[in-house]
Design a protein around this nucleic acid. Structure first.
Lengths: 148, 148
DNA sequence: CCGTATCCAACAGGATACTG
DNA sequence: CAGTATCCTGTTGGATACGG
């Protein structure tokens, strides 16, 4: 198994790689990251998880008001999806008007920690990425100018 | 700033939360995680990053053959996107037939590390999630039966 | 209050054909 | 070899109206 070495960055992916992604087989080429990202890579899951991580429990409309821009439909869809994966727990109090509370499960909290880690990476490197985008735009523009 | 406490899990998100997501303002409510996930939360970016992390450089068709299922178009699109964000470096050797090499930048490698972390989380908790999905399906079915 | 149902626009991405 | 260009389909998610 090969090792990667660039700029004195040596990452021994060999061991980990087989765990997280095995491309050699059509059937065993299942990728857990893909599965996870298919679920919370959507538009609202992260916001929802982050919000639920701020307090121990929240009601539907409370969540809706804190996640700016989300529609009623999408909040329902998102919460069902998270509930289905065992990340969020839904408690219904049988009363009129209905009262429903949502909270992260311990699994949800462990994902939250990963999200926070990813968020810290994103915050740290966001300026590099933005610079790269600007630089790329400049390169593309100059190529366009040359081809005129 | 509130603290979250469930099952003896105390995460002090207060400090980190403001960095990674500020929902209080329409304009300052910019979320770096969202930005990042909008980029590599797509269908092919992770596979591409993982593959490029396996060797120090790869050619276009080499990549295409290793990422099973990807179309020529989507590989181009994905690589351009990653290049634009400074995660991948593209080297063109002006010869016929053309020779193009791709490699991760150091920024790309640091993202790869995050992906590996996420992948380990996913691998560790995948069985819990699958169980939760099955359990959810059972609950839903029994509700359907009751309503019949 | 907390949803569900329906309709619809926008976009991601696959198939195919063509090019320097 | 390494792409573009074009077309076309499936899915995501927003708007709106209605229901227990």
């Amino acid at each position: 198994m090969e090792r990667t070495n660039i700029d004195n960055q040596t990452i021994d992916l060999g061991k980990k790689f087989e765990i997280i992604y095995n491309p050699s087989s059509e059937f065993k080429g299942y990728c857990p990251i893909r599965d996870i990202l298919d679920r919370f890579g959507d538009k609202w899951s992260i916001y929802t998880i982050l919000q639920l991580g701020q307090t121990d429990k929240m009601r539907f409309n409370e969540l809706k008001s804190k996640i700016s821009g989300i529609s009623q439909r999408m909040l329902t869809v998102t919460l069902r999806s998270l509930e289905q994966d065992g990340l969020v727990e839904r408690t219904i109090y049988p009363q009129i008007p209905p009262r429903v509370e949502y909270r992260l499960t311990s699994l949800g909290f462990s994902l939250l920690e990963q999200m926070v880690n990813l968020g810290e990476w994103a915050s740290t490197h966001m300026d590099e990425i933005i610079k790269a985008r600007e630089c790329f735009a400049t390169k593309t523009n100059s190529q366009l100018i040359q081809s005129n």
